[in-house]
Simulated scan of single mutants.
Amino acid sequence: MAMTTGKVKLPDEVVTAVINKAKDTSVIAALSPSTPQVFTDRDYLVFNGRSEADVTAEGQTKSSYEQDTTTVTAKRFKVQTTTRVTSELQWADEDNRFQIISAIQEDQAAAIGRALDYVVLHAINPKSGEALAGYDALSGTAVQVTAGDDDIANVDALASAVNDLYDVNGVALSKTWAARLRKLRVPATGMRYFPEIPLNLQAGTLDGVKAATSGTVNGRLAKTATNVLAFMGDFSLIKWGMVRDVTSTIIPYGDPDQTGVDLSAVNQVAYRTEAVFAYAVLDPKGIAVLKSAATGTAGK
């Protein structure tokens, strides 16, 4: 005998409790301004201005110099995240349903922002934790600095490693290194060396330079440990933007994420958020990366 809707107990009220765990954020979005992108292969013609004034005597032949230019092509990548939820969500009244959907979309938008760091900094797919083919990780092309036991010396070594043609205008900290720096104290007074790093490690500056802290810096989702502690240098060299803005779609049926389970078979609907990015690193030698000598498997 078929079940009638009269025998189904519908929820009178849906109460949503969102657990706000500490979320990683994009350090690139924080330290490098975004620029609009187009859906074509954009080439950046890098002009390395190096002219200097020449003092000439009366009647002396005037000198000149040859100007070099290089070309860097922006790379595109598409990111998406799909969340399955029970179709009973549709039974909730409009206010409660909007609250749940908003929480899902906020979570997905944050994930897409973190993906920018994983691709540019580590050439890693954050969902799988595996390396991406055809992408050059900034952690591999930047100036390499190996961390020692003295973290004050490590800060100085990072700054010294940046090509002197560039200004240091940003530092991206892993939470591991930010925690270590926060604990450093002046032996004579007990005062903190870096009082600008709070208990939550979200430093706005470090030694007068704009800073951002995130687990994306060391790639906490990577299957293989990156050993990265920090990046420092000229973050204006990282050009990025959205080719297609973030869009959200409701998928009522089918198998959108290829799990082998149809949505309708298990009374589910899916919410998908996706975007297309483009980025280019004009000169990776304008940024230095600090790495620990330790090896191992990355932790979540």
Rank of each mutant, 00 (worst) to 15 (best):
E58R: 04
R76L: 14
L89P: 00
Y65E: 13
Y65V: 12
G59H: 04
K75D: 07
A103S: 12
T83H: 05
T71R: 07
K78N: 15
Q60T: 09
T71V: 13
N96W: 00
T81P: 01
T81M: 13
A74P: 00
T83R: 05
G59K: 04
E66C: 01
G59A: 10
T81G: 14
Q90C: 02
D68F: 03
S87I: 03
S64R: 06
W91H: 06
D95V: 13
I101N: 03
T82N: 07
V79T: 10
T73G: 08
T82H: 04
T69C: 08
A74Y: 00
E66F: 07
Q60D: 15
E88K: 13
E94A: 15
D68T: 09
V72H: 05
T61Q: 15
F98R: 10
Q60R: 05
E88I: 03
I101V: 15
E94H: 10
T81W: 02
T71Q: 05
Y65W: 08
T81S: 14
I100S: 02
A53N: 08
K78E: 15
D95C: 01
S87D: 13
I100R: 02
F77N: 08
E66I: 10
E58M: 05
Y65T: 11
K78R: 15
Q80S: 15
K75L: 08
T73L: 08
D93G: 11
Y65S: 14
V85N: 05
N96Y: 01
Q90V: 01
V55W: 05
K75N: 07
G59C: 04
A92C: 04
R84M: 06
K75F: 03
Q67Y: 02
F98H: 07
T61G: 13
G59P: 01
E66N: 08
E58C: 03
T86C: 06
E66A: 13
R76C: 11
T81I: 15
Q67T: 13
S102C: 04
A103I: 00
A53S: 13
F98E: 15
R76N: 15
R97D: 03
I100P: 01
V55I: 11
V85E: 14
T82S: 12
S87H: 02
R97I: 02
T69Y: 14
Y65R: 08
F77H: 09
K75G: 03
D54G: 02
R84L: 10
R84E: 11
R84H: 10
T73M: 13
K75V: 02
Q67S: 14
L89H: 02
